[in-house]
Nucleic acid binder design. Sequence first.
DNA 1: ACCTGAACACCGTTCAAGT
DNA 2: ACCTGAACACCGTTCAAGT
Lengths: 230, 230
Amino acid sequence: VAKTNPRGAGRKPLLSQTAIVAAAMRLIEREGLDALTIRNVASELGVKSASLYWHFPSKEALVDRLADEVLEGLAPTPPRDDWRDDLRVGALALFRHLRARRDSARLRAGRLVTGPNTLRWMEAGLVVFRRAGLSDTDAAYASHAVHVFTLGSVIFAASPLSADHTRGGSAAAALAAARGAFQALEPTRYPNIVELAAPLTEGDAETRFLYGLDCLIAGMERRVSSRKET
Amino acid sequence: VAKTNPRGAGRKPLLSQTAIVAAAMRLIEREGLDALTIRNVASELGVKSASLYWHFPSKEALVDRLADEVLEGLAPTPPRDDWRDDLRVGALALFRHLRARRDSARLRAGRLVTGPNTLRWMEAGLVVFRRAGLSDTDAAYASHAVHVFTLGSVIFAASPLSADHTRGGSAAAALAAARGAFQALEPTRYPNIVELAAPLTEGDAETRFLYGLDCLIAGMERRVSSRKET
DNA sequence: ACCTGAACACCGTTCAAGT
DNA sequence: ACCTGAACACCGTTCAAGT
């Protein structure tokens, strides 16, 4: 017994990074990102808020961790014959995964995450583009473009129309309200918005996403084929 | 003097919606969106925080207003011969405008703004797509896709690598740090990320944006021309 | 080593009260 | 009509103190 136990008196810790992360994810799913406070996470764990600072240096560090954690369980599908299909399937999977998790896009927006889940997903995306025959630079840029578009789509799809609707009704109600607002505009100033009020506010988020995604893919395909012809 | 002045005792108000909006914009430009608090805006105007609630019902309502205000001064260029050029020029103008205004993308992310500046921009975008010969639905979806991609690009371009870099260095420093992190990964798990570390972290934000934008436009062009052939 | 108590310097918002 | 004083119920974070 010349050595003292470096782990202390042998009591097992109440907290851990993974326990804190799990509690934070539960809280977000249950009450939304705005309810994510250090104090709320602490009480979720039956502990005092100051205790969390032993395991995370700041709330920002915890949120960084959550931004990667939100991709947990998203498994890249192995590439198949057609890189366009692979790309479409992969981007759609990411879109649906983020849509299914409350406030996930807001969580990821504004931070370049480098956690294991994000890296795994990035890696899988690059594989697709390189198999398609894109150059190094093209693969990097194309991968980035698809990611940007996907995250932007999730953000928009989850956007309330205004502060009035933030807490309020469903996405459908928000779109209906938007349509009404568009139709009520002065037709002399905004003729096209008024006329296109219906198409601007119809269709679900996934349809809109796939429209843009297919445009992106078609454009990239053109780049690839013109390269092969050379 | 049988009637009392409905405007009160004749003193001119210290505050107004426009004065509050202007002060809030100054504050964001000077100290960033995180410093935008009702109390800070009030002291910027030499007034007490409770006073603002006479002019805006909540901070959310003020931020809604700011999300439109940030597009002030962004003038749509009149359409020219080639709709692809119009689209490219317009999207690039929006990208640069948002990039030039501190935290503008964060301000707009997560809300579907319906203010006058946003509507003016939307209207101009729809004009371009309808001139290009897209159907109503296509014009609405395509316009949305470009907007989503542009906003997503600005958000990513302004993203710090992690909490460590939030306050810290420049964008170049963040990218250099990202490159180092990518190169340091295990090559067996992330072979493509390691190999493409350089292209993944080189090039400025605008180059990356234009790559994706040109892909999008090329894909839309294909849709238009295949439609015309029918 | 790990957690608590207590404090510090903040928040958004409300509301009676002043003018 | 418009602004203030004062309060309420929160925040993130620090740090000496406990065990």
